[in-house]
Design a binder for these strands. Structure first.
Length: 396
RNA sequence: GCGUAGGUGGCGGAGUGGUCAAUCGCAACAGACUGUAAAUCUGUCGCCCAAUGGGCUACGCAGGUUCAAAUCCUGCCCUACGCACCA
């Protein structure tokens, strides 16, 4: 069986979670041709973690991979240092080489949770970018005009507001485009915010006499607070999060995001997702559906056993408000003040913080008794609950 | 280089001699409500103190004036914008 031109799969690749394809007809033709294509994804390791938002292109890449296409994963060790202006309203700082290498360390391993590493070609873009001499850079720069650059939304806005735009930022899309030339990309995928850079790839490929890549942009994913998932917002769900944590974060998503998450972050078929959508419309409890979502995702990045455990934990601790079986364990001495112990172990940030929590009735011993005395002394082993999520077992 | 504006708590942004640990918004944390949430409402949100109060450290950095400084003066550092340079 020739997987390459499986039309059904191809259609799903081209639509599921996809924001836009440029040029759709051309890409479709390429895929239906049955010839393996070079699919490029470039990632600048500006942080060490992969969160569910960043996992989307990896999952898309995996789909291409399963169809038999060649995935080229560009580790932007060089471009990360230059700094992509795409998702920033202001200027980005340049990272040092050390920052970047540090970030890359565990990156590949985590990519392996999604992609088949054996079939993935990894390349560092410093391999060619670091070698460019000025003559060559000037040559690349010739392919673009200032007008084209200024047409870009976030440059245009900043320009009109008289805000600073450095020339370095103009260079970034050129470098990303040059990457496409170097790997001879047929297809490049990235988030919608990258549209300009993706198209720059086409311009530069053409300039170098190559066929232009088609570009596929995927939808941006909202994080736990409803804003775009981004490490700097602190609203991320990382694929390396512990099962309980991952499960809990997914449960705390607002209901409106359920279907989007199923579509972008799970492997459920579109038919199944459609059915879930109908269930929701006809009044199924979104909580239960969200539990399924959380379970599916935890299975994906951990395993079934862990996912079951995380679900049981959630049901017992948050739904039934029971005490968890497991909790961080802390040793203490009989007669020691709870405040001192919790501050020492950094469960609370300061004595003042602890007092405030006590005043707010947020600290409970063994599930029931609220503490009202800030100088509560520990007399025997007990389970302390701080707020809703933090549990600490204190042993004497 | 010249000029102008400015540097305040995690962020944005008030405050221009005492009533300022600093209005307000966001974020965060907690409580209520709920279907776990979200939304909403309430409270907290520098640190320390057995405390309806007291102390300490903070408003770019270093000095100074004053009984008293985030607020005034001097020097320094930094940022943005404008001008100059580019014919």
């Amino acid at each position: 069986m020739n997987k390459l031109n499986n039309e059904e799969k191809i259609n799903e690749i081209l639509t599921r979670g996809v924001e836009d394809v440029f040029v759709l007809e051309s890409l479709k033709k390429k895929l239906l041709s049955g010839k393996p294509q070079i699919v490029k994804l470039g990632v600048d390791p500006t942080g060490p973690n992969i969160h569910l938002g960043r996992a989307i292109p990896l999952r898309k890449l995996r789909d291409f991979q399963r169809l038999g296409h060649q995935v080229v994963f560009i580790l932007g060790d060089f471009t990360a240092q230059i700094g992509d202006p795409s998702d920033k309203l202001g200027k980005r700082p340049m990272l040092t080489k050390e920052n970047v290498l540090e970030n890359i360390k565990n990156y590949k391993k985590n990519v392996g949770k999604i992609l088949d590493l054996k079939k993935t070609k990894f390349v560092y873009n410093s391999k060619w970018l670091a070698k460019l001499n000025f003559r060559e850079i000037a040559d690349i720069a010739e392919s673009f005009t200032v007008q084209q650059m200024l047409a870009r939304r976030n440059f245009k806005d900043r320009y009109e507001k008289n805000e600073e735009i450095s020339l370095r930022e103009f260079l970034y899309p050129l470098l990303q485009g040059y990457d496409s030339v170097m790997v001879k990309a047929d297809i490049e995928i990235a988030g919608l915010d990258q549209l300009f850079n993706l198209k720059a790839g086409r311009v530069i490929q053409k300039y170098y006499g190559q066929p232009e890549q088609d570009v596929l942009t995927y939808q941006m994913l909202e994080g736990t607070d409803g804003r775009k998932m981004s490490t700097s917002w602190g609203n991320v769900i990382n694929i390396t999060d512990e099962p309980n944590d991952m499960f809990g974060k997914i449960m705390s998503l607002r209901d409106e995001l359920i279907i989007k998450y199923f579509t972008l972050c799970t492997d459920l078929s579109l038919v199944e997702i459609k059915k879930i959508e109908q269930d929701l419309v006809s009044g199924a409890n979104p909580r239960d559906i969200k539990m399924k979502l959380a379970w599916e995702i935890v299975v994906m990045y951990h395993n079934k056993k862990e996912a079951d455990k995380a679900r049981d934990y959630f049901v017992s601790v948050f739904q039934k408000k029971e005490n968890p079986d497991e909790a961080q364990e802390i040793k203490a001495v009989v007669g020691e003040k709870l405040m001192d112990v919790l501050v020492r172990e950094k469960v609370v940030s300061s004595n003042s913080d602890f007092r405030r929590l006590v005043e707010g009735g947020s600290i409970k011993i063994n599930g029931e008794e609220k503490i009202t005395d800030p100088f509560f002394e520990i007399l025997k082993t007990c389970l302390v609950k701080v707020g809703k999520h933090r549990f600490v077992k204190i042993e004497v």
